[in-house]
């Protein structure tokens, strides 16, 4: 397999990290409301966005995903008091790391999505997929002969 799929149209794969209480429920809400969005995302659920080790994001890129979307409860709504504060702080550091690395930081996005914001979830996914399609395959994709 060739990085980026050769002549075939580029079909990005995007990891979405969701917290159990808000954004995963937001994604469910998008489903219940039958909001259509592109099938490029793969959701990984954790209890709190504060569990999302920046290493998971780096690992996702190293393993060949083209974009990562980190989601959590809105600021002030965290089920665990302030887990998303820590997510935000780590994200700031991580996005600087991507900047320096030269990996387009548009491949990484942080969004707060509540349990009722199914439409927002769908819209954010649409935007991210659109954005990553524009950027093309991730330059960090493993090289496999």
């Amino acid at each position: 397999m060739q990085a980026g799929g050769g002549v075939k149209e580029f079909v990005p794969k995007i990891v979405v990290f969701c917290c159990n209480w808000c954004s995963y429920a937001g994604a469910d809400m998008a489903g219940v409301s039958r909001m259509q969005y592109p099938p490029n995302i793969r959701i990984i659920k954790v209890m709190c966005s504060g569990r999302i080790d920046p290493i998971f994001v780096l690992m996702s890129f190293m393993e060949g995903t083209d974009g990562v979307l980190v989601t959590g409860c809105h600021i002030g709504d965290c089920h665990y008091i302030n887990g998303n504060y820590k997510t935000q702080n780590r994200f700031e550091i991580l996005s600087e790391m991507m900047n320096e690395l030269g990996l387009e930081k548009e491949r990484l996005r942080l969004e707060w999505i509540s349990a009722t914001e199914g439409e927002k979830f769908a819209n954010v996914v649409k935007e991210v997929v659109e954005q990553v399609k524009k950027l093309g395959p991730s330059p960090l994709k493993p090289v496999i002969e």
């Binding site: 794969k13 990891v15 393993e63 060949g64 995903t65």
Partner: peptide, 8 residues
């Protein structure tokens, strides 16, 4: 994470 793409 590794099984999202499963390139490796």
């Amino acid at each position: 994470i590794k099984n999202v793409c499963r390139l490796v």
